[in-house]
């Protein structure tokens, strides 16, 4: 029904889109969790309210991404996940803690609220760190040697900082008053971590992989790639200028840090995707070698083409319904 050469490409692209959506969307609500220790109790309630209607659907993009890996590239799925056994387990425990703490903190007896807040923070931190660690290991070719583990510990911290940054940007967008001013300060602190993290990954990646080095610095591709780092640098500069002026009197530009952080993540993502293509298990399996049977991919694609626009449609509907500043979270 579909061409066996293009199908794996389409699924790699779909998986890429899911991962990107996940990193941006769950990124901001994980970030909100990471910022919990810096917020007062009433502020925490408001921060939770700002992500309440969204976090569940945001997390579903991870399920879709891992689902596509599972169904479209079953061999790669096994290879990658057995190599990342421990960080995956840590991430899952983090996701469990944070997902349930979100519900329990509002429903448990009042005295139990603080421990659940701590669990929410710990779960967010474990999730972010484990994901950053896995990203590092993936860049390094899923190879458990000390220098590579050390590098991955670095990316773990970098991703946690990036999530905190976009989380702070979300709070700037969704709140006002003292909490919004506080979030601007968080973002100012986080932006340096963001620059360092993205910079470190960008420098280390071509150094460990001759193939990626060649891909980045080969003429004429380097001309086409040059806008990526240049745009990122420009965005960081604009962000810094904006954060110094925020919040403005009429709340204009409150959207800017979040939008800029999103674009930064998109740029970083395209850099990564370009570097790894056509491999799905770095340096080992290409997307064509790992792809599932054509008839199975075809039947999934038909459903995806019908359903994905609907999913995007009602996801946007939810963001429209819950637009504006977050208020008290209640069921009525």
């Amino acid at each position: 029904m579909f061409d066996p050469q293009t199908l794996p490409l389409i699924f790699a692209a779909l998986m890429g889109v899911s991962i990107l959506l996940y990193v941006v969307l769950d990124g901001f609500d994980l970030g909100v969790g990471l910022l919990f220790p810096f917020a007062a109790e009433a502020e925490r309630d408001r921060m939770i309210a700002s992500i309440g209607p969204f976090w569940d659907a945001n997390e579903t993009w991870l399920v879709l991404a891992i689902g596509i890996l599972l169904v479209a590239f079953p061999v790669a799925h096994g290879d990658i996940l057995t190599a990342l056994y421990l960080p995956v387990a840590v991430m899952l425990i983090g996701l469990i803690l944070r997902g349930v703490a979100f519900e329990f903190r509002a429903k448990a007896p009042l005295g139990h609220k603080r421990p659940w807040d701590a669990a929410f923070w710990a779960g967010s931190a474990l999730t972010a760190l484990a994901q950053g660690f896995m990203l590092g290991m993936y860049v390094m070719g899923l190879d458990w040697t000390w220098p590579k583990v050390a590098f991955s510990l670095g990316t773990a911290v970098a991703l946690a900082v990036a999530y905190s940054f976009i989380g702070a940007a979300w709070v700037i967008l969704k709140t006002d008053g003292a909490l919004q001013r506080k979030a601007v300060r968080w973002a100012k602190g986080g932006i340096w971590g963001l620059v360092l993290g993205m910079g470190a990954v960008s420098v280390a990646t071509p150094l460990v992989s001759p193939r990626i080095f060649d891909k980045w610095f080969r003429f004429p591709e380097i001309v086409a790639l040059a806008p990526l780092p240049m745009m990122s640098a420009l965005l960081v500069a604009l962000l810094w200028l904006a954060l110094r002026r925020l919040p403005t009197a009429n709340d204009s530009f409150a959207w800017f840090p979040f939008a800029a952080a999103t674009v930064l993540m998109v740029l970083g993502f395209f850099g990564m995707a370009y570097s790894f293509y056509p491999y799905i298990v770095p340096e080992k399996l290409t997307i064509w070698q790992a792809a599932a049977a054509t008839e199975s991919l075809s039947i999934i694609l038909v459903g995806t083409l019908v359903v994905l626009p609907m999913i995007l449609g009602y996801t946007i509907l939810a963001y429209v319904i819950f637009r504006g500043k977050a208020t008290k979270l209640s069921y009525d």
Partner: peptide, 21 residues
């Protein structure tokens, strides 16, 4: 995977997002 995959994929596509949103 060629059988289980599409079934799981349809679960995510037709159920998970609908419920979550």
């Amino acid at each position: 995977g060629n059988v289980a995959g599409p079934l799981l994929a349809y679960e995510v596509l037709t159920a998970f997002f609908l419920e979550a949103v």
